[in-house]
């Protein structure tokens, strides 16, 4: 830190833990790079319909399977749709699916973890065996079975992904709350007659916030990948709605794979770049919330 030498250290107030975490996060170069990629991507994806002339499903009959050019920056696909517009729309769908499914799985994961830790031995054992079971089956298999029942579309995809991803979180929340349950302030709150909702939301939730934030960030990257994987296999988001996965699905036809690489390479690159950047941010947050990381 260069600024520290100028400020007189005696007057400086001690920083709170959140402030210190924020400082650590800002100092993390990989996390900054992640933010540098993710923020423009999110802005572009949210606002593209105001500044990009083509709609994702508009057909330009004069441009079919054309490569990148001044008018269609990333080329066009087999029916003359603009690849850049579909890429941005696909990103929008991916983000909507990811954010919604993560929100749902956080609620389920936190509640299951909380109830397991505060609910007594029988409830705990039952819930954890259930979590074990959900984690035994290979995730993609589970995803396929669920998707075969739920069908395609945005809402079923969100449902399927969120049903798949809560068990890991509920494990972490349970571990944290089991430790918290024995702390003096929780014992005191209990002694004063606090009920389960008070314990969970006044004491449990604030003390789990770091787990939840880190999980949410990393899980958004994961959910983007799951959605892309499902759509790639022809489940998940069905055409004509665009998604990075079903744009990659086009490359399963040999002609597209061999002759029109811009139709699948750009969505692939967007996918990897976004996921990588979000993972950097997630790792940065995890290190930032870890008080031991100042020692290294």
């Amino acid at each position: 830190m260069t600024g520290a030498a100028i400020e007189p250290p005696a007057i400086q107030r001690t920083k709170g833990p959140l402030r210190r975490a924020l400082d650590r996060f800002i100092e993390n170069r990989a996390a900054r790079a992640g933010l540098f990629i993710v923020i423009p991507v999110v802005i572009a994806v949210v606002t593209y319909h105001w500044w990009w002339p083509y709609a994702p499903n508009a057909i330009d009959l004069k441009a079919m399977n054309k490569g990148p050019s001044a008018t269609h920056w990333l080329g066009s696909d087999g029916v003359g749709r603009d690849v850049f517009a579909r890429l941005l729309q696909g990103g929008r769908i991916s983000l909507v699916v990811a954010v919604c499914s993560v929100a749902i799985s956080i609620v389920i994961g936190f509640l299951v973890g909380a109830i397991a830790s505060f609910g007594g031995r029988v409830v705990d054992a039952t819930a954890m065996r259930f979590v074990d079971l959900a984690m035994t089956l290979p995730p993609v298999i589970f995803l396929l079975v669920l998707a075969s029942i739920a069908g395609t579309g945005i809402a079923p995809t969100i449902l399927v992904i969120s049903l798949l991803s809560w068990p890991v979180l509920s494990r972490m929340v349970r571990a944290r709350l089991l430790e918290l349950r024995e702390r003096d302030f929780v014992v005191a709150a209990r002694g004063m007659g606090a009920g389960l909702p008070h314990l969970l939301f006044r004491h449990g939730l604030p003390n789990c916030i770091d787990i939840l934030v880190v999980y949410a960030t990393l899980q958004i990257a994961n959910a983007i990948l799951l959605e892309a994987g499902l759509s790639f296999l022809g489940l998940g988001i069905a055409p004509p709605e665009a998604s990075w996965g079903n744009m990659l699905n086009l490359a399963r036809s040999t002609v597209v794979l061999e002759q029109y690489p811009w139709q699948w390479m750009f969505p692939g690159a967007a996918l990897v770049l976004t996921v990588l950047a979000i993972n950097f941010i997630g790792d940065g947050l995890r290190d930032a919330f870890d008080p031991r990381s100042d020692l290294n």
Binding site: G229, L248, A251, L257, G268, L271, V272, V275, L276, N279
Partner: peptide, 22 residues
């Protein structure tokens, strides 16, 4: 290894097919 962990199997499969076979 970070890139390897982050890139999904279907994308590496497509890229591998494109470069090494096509």
């Amino acid at each position: 290894s970070f890139i390897g962990i982050s890139s999904p199997a279907f994308l590496t499969a497509l890229l591998g097919l494109y470069f090494f076979s096509v």
